[in-house]
Each structure stands twice: as C-alpha cells, then as structure tokens.
Amino acid sequence: MTKILLTDEHVAALCCPEDSAHLEVFDALLKGFYVDLLRSGRKSYRLRYRVKSRLRVVTLGDAQVMTADQARTLVNEVIHQARVGVDTFAPPEAVLGPTLEQFFVEQYLPYVKSYKRSWDTDESMIRTHLVPQLGRLHMSVIKPPDVAVFIEHMKAKKYAMGTCNRALVLLRYGYVLAVRWGVLSADCNPMKHIKNLSDDSRIEHFLTNEQAQSLLFEIKKSDNEMLQWIVLFLLYTGARKREVLESRWSDFDLAQRSWRIPKTKSGKVRHVPLSEHALGVLQAIKARYGHHAFTFVFANEKTGLPYVSIFYSWDTARKRAGLSYLRVHHLRHSFASFLVNAGRSLYEVQEILGHADIRTTSRYAHLSRERLQEAVESVPLVR
C-alpha cells in the first residue's frame, strides 16, 4: 500500500502505471483517505470508513476540481458523523427499498419453495449466514466491499470454501430475482462484480475396495438393521441419500431392471438402471421384511415411513471403520469412481448420476493410481 501526504502538488505529480488499470495512493495522516488514479488520467478522492460496523467506500470528488484540503475537510466531517452512527453518504430512506432480510424472507423464500426441492438448504443459509451479517442492510446500498467483508467473516469462522461459494451463489441469484421483479434497478447489483472463490484445496473422498469392505463390516453390526441395505444400495446405484430413503416399491420395474426416481434434485424424472447387486439388495429386503411389507423400500420398521435421519448409526459405523471423515454423499463419489476405473465413459456416468452438466460429473472422475500407471505404461518404447 502506497502512502504519502496528499497535497495538491503531490496529487498532481502522481500518475497510474501503464501496466495497471488503476492505482490507489493513501494519505499518510487520515486513515482510509486516498486518491484513486485511473490509467485514463482521471483522479478521484475517495474514502473507506465504517459506520455501524459496515464498511463504506465512497467517492468524494474529482481531484482535478476538488483541492486536497477540501477533500480532507470533508473526510473529517464524514468520519466524525460515522462515529456517532450517522452515514453522510446514505441515500434517503424513501429510495432504499427492502433490507436484505426482508427480501430474502418475504419474497425469495416463498418463490423458491414453489419449485425447489432443496429450498430448506437456502433457508438455512439465509438464517445462519446472510441475515446475521447483511440482513439489516438495504439491498440497494450493499456494495462489493460489504460482500467481501461478509465472506471474510465466514472464512474467519473456518467455513469451507464450498460453503462460502454457496452463500455467494445464493446472494447472486437473489439479486438477479430482485432486478427481474423490479425491486432493484440493475445498477444496484453488487454481485455482478463478485466471483466465486477458487476452491483448489477441495478434497474428494473415494472408497477403495478395502475401505468399502471395512465400512460394510462395521455397518452390518449396527443396531439399525436397515442401514446395511441403505449403504449397499447407495454404493450400487450412485443415488443421493434422500432419493434412496424416499424410494417406493412402486418406483421399481424389476423385470426391466429400472428405478424411476420421480423427484430429483433438478426436478426432473430420472431412470436408473439396476445392476445384479442392486437387485440383490431389493430381493434381500423382500425376503427379510416380506413382499411389499411397506410402501417405502427402506422404511423404518417401527413406523413404515422413511428415516428422517440415519446419521447416528452411520456415524458410529464409519468411526469404527476408521473413516470418520467419510460422508454419506461420498458413496456417490465412490460409485462414479468405480465406474470410471472400470473404463466407463464420463457420458455414461453423467447419465446414470443424472447430471445436467458434464463438468459436475468430472469432479467424480477419480482414477486410481493403478489405472493411471497402466495408462502411462501403454506408451510404446521409442528406440
């Protein structure tokens, strides 16, 4: 960060390097006071300050029209007002529009509930993250620095990059809807300038055959007898947890070896081919609990309804198997990994998993070290 005493003489002598779009030079005396130099030659006095814990970045005036002393006087006034909770540059209340909390709770959530199966995930993100940090701010005055501070707060609390990115995606979609519905003007969307965080450190977990055997050994000892069939079916189909837990006998055509999933994450019907192993799981359940004993295939024997959660029995088994990091969703990763390592194409994996975008499928395209070794060994010897 470049710091000098901002005077008319010093500012007049400053220029932006040719290899930069702009240059910020801060005042050596007043914190947050700086001149922003553009490659075009334009110079503006600006100020970063906080009012009611909110970061504000405002333009004070053109440095070729306003003197450094005039800008400095205005800075002192703005900072003095901010200390008593008054934001000099806040727009009139009449044009502020809804706060972020009002929009997301009163307009966004009712809308996504009408079509989105995973709306409760959005509700949790809004309640846990967006409202506590940004909820009281009016959407029309939220700027990219406010979003940056929000994300830095999440990172400081050790939330994963994926969680931070989901918050950004939710904010971005909310602003798109607000503009589309006329709640905000297009120039009030700070998310146009915000990109998702780079998540290069993300780790995908895939079960080896040995780990799968160890996990199943412990799961078979679980007090929840149905857990073994649930886990096996997840491994044999690559389906999502709720798709399996909520599956009904009427969804299966055993003669055609097909499973029709009527409610998928994308909202579209999906047909999953069933392997001999997957069919074997269904036959085992029939033999144990009777033919069509319940409407739901993997029903809780006490209620006949799908399990609300299998976490505690799953958590006990995975820890005993030495796989405490493993999530149920990693069984889906493993299924895809098994297919790819068996030589199946990403297109085939995409169809079976029901991905709309091949880029999503590529996340699961883990190749074992043995298969990669086989690939490099296939290059012929050059003499």
Results as ranks from 00 to 15, higher is better:
187 D>G: 03
170 L>H: 03
1 M>S: 14
139 M>C: 08
244 V>D: 01
320 R>T: 04
64 Q>A: 10
157 K>P: 04
104 F>S: 05
8 D>T: 12
3 K>R: 15
205 H>L: 10
278 A>C: 13
56 R>D: 10
360 T>M: 12
87 D>L: 08
378 S>F: 06
116 K>M: 02
29 L>F: 04
142 I>F: 07
62 D>M: 07
261 I>N: 07
122 D>H: 04
265 K>F: 04
112 V>R: 13
356 A>E: 09
122 D>L: 01
177 L>H: 02
195 K>D: 11
146 D>P: 07
296 F>V: 04
112 V>T: 15
206 F>Q: 07
209 N>M: 12
63 A>P: 00
382 V>T: 10
24 E>D: 15
89 F>A: 11
254 L>H: 03
150 F>V: 01
149 V>F: 04
177 L>D: 00
302 K>E: 12
220 K>P: 03
302 K>I: 06
160 A>M: 09
164 C>S: 08
52 K>C: 13
98 P>V: 02
169 V>C: 12
245 L>A: 02
222 S>K: 09
306 P>K: 00
59 T>A: 14
376 V>K: 06
160 A>G: 05
295 T>K: 13
297 V>P: 02
212 A>R: 14
357 D>E: 06
110 P>F: 02
262 P>C: 11
344 R>P: 01
36 D>R: 14
376 V>D: 02
304 G>A: 05
196 N>T: 15
101 E>T: 06
123 E>V: 04
297 V>H: 06
6 L>C: 06
356 A>S: 15
115 Y>F: 15
154 M>F: 09
205 H>S: 07
250 S>T: 13
63 A>T: 10
60 L>P: 01
234 L>K: 05
34 Y>P: 00
190 P>H: 01
379 V>Y: 03
243 E>W: 01
241 K>R: 15
84 V>H: 12
1 M>H: 12
345 S>C: 07
194 I>S: 01
382 V>D: 11
343 G>W: 06
270 R>G: 03
95 V>N: 07
307 Y>M: 03
210 E>M: 02
155 K>D: 10
19 D>M: 05
250 S>G: 08
198 S>H: 10
136 R>E: 13
119 W>C: 05
303 T>F: 07
96 L>K: 14
312 Y>C: 12
89 F>S: 09
6 L>E: 01
130 L>N: 08
222 S>N: 10
286 K>F: 03
280 G>A: 06
186 A>C: 08
270 R>E: 09
64 Q>L: 08
179 V>E: 00
196 N>V: 05
375 A>D: 06
271 H>Q: 14
242 R>D: 13
290 G>T: 08
214 S>L: 14
22 H>C: 05
69 D>F: 01
128 T>R: 15
286 K>D: 08
195 K>M: 05
264 T>E: 11
237 T>D: 06
309 S>T: 14
56 R>W: 09
148 A>D: 13
83 R>G: 04
289 Y>P: 00
376 V>H: 03
338 F>P: 02
233 F>T: 02
303 T>M: 04
195 K>R: 13
98 P>L: 04
68 A>Q: 00
